[in-house]
Amino acid sequence: MQNPYVPIPVVVDKIITEVDTKDIKTFRLAFQNKQDEENFKYIPGQFAELSVFGKGESPIGIASSPTQKGYIEFTVQRAGLVTSFLHEMEEGTHMGVRGPLGNSWPIEFLEGKNIVVVGGGFAFTTLRSLINYMIHGDNRKRFGNITVIYGARNPGLLIYKDELKEWEKRDDLNINVTVDKGDDTWKGREGFVPAVCREVAPSSDNAVAVICGPPIMIRFTLPVFFDLKFSKENIITSLEMRMKCGIGKCGRCNVGHKYVCKDGPVFSLAELDKLTKEY
């Protein structure tokens, strides 16, 4: 019987500091055993428990795309016991990963449709996974137009800055990066994500919006998409809850009779409407 509580051994291959405040870093993890790498089959939107013996575990969305071979990436904000430890780590450290866990962005449902990706601040990690997956040469044809709207409070807080620049050079991707407030060197767009969504006004025709961000952004962004006539079935988001086991047993991340760790974290607004409002 496979033991779902035992972490897969990995080594920290690379650490990238993403933001000026230095409290968000991306950890590139390589598997210690080749077989584990082959077995770790994931889909964008899934997460894993980052496991640090002596400290505990933290559920974090997978930020890399399965099209990137040889490693998995996680972008982590320094917040609690485990994430603070992660931020103190050096490259070469041995740690563990449990996963992949949870459902995923509904790739089959997204196929053949125009995709609008909306992200805010640090909640852009599994969206980045989705974007990299969709724009990969093997997959790009499976999706229609891809529009990305991504915002942060200021230019220094944008994550994946180099990648954003690369994406801007592509002609098969409409990317709109915005900051609430620019600085002296910022030449890009200024404005809150909801306002930029209204300005970009993606068509709801055969389109799905995939939205992730802080609650305040979600609150003001959803009405924009309702105005654009996106149905609740075609607005998809991802929930966060305190988790421990990650496999629907320890009993703390339920929303009604659904466990966010096992039945989520990805839900459409139509699905969320059917659940209790407790998240």
Binding site: N3, Y5, V6, G92, T93, H94, M95
Partner: peptide, 17 residues
């Protein structure tokens, strides 16, 4: 106890259930 581990040079390593 779900598992045991021990400190090695590069971090803790899983040693058994």
């Amino acid at each position: 106890t779900l598992m045991r581990y021990t400190r090695k040079e590069k971090g803790y390593e899983f040693t058994g259930l």
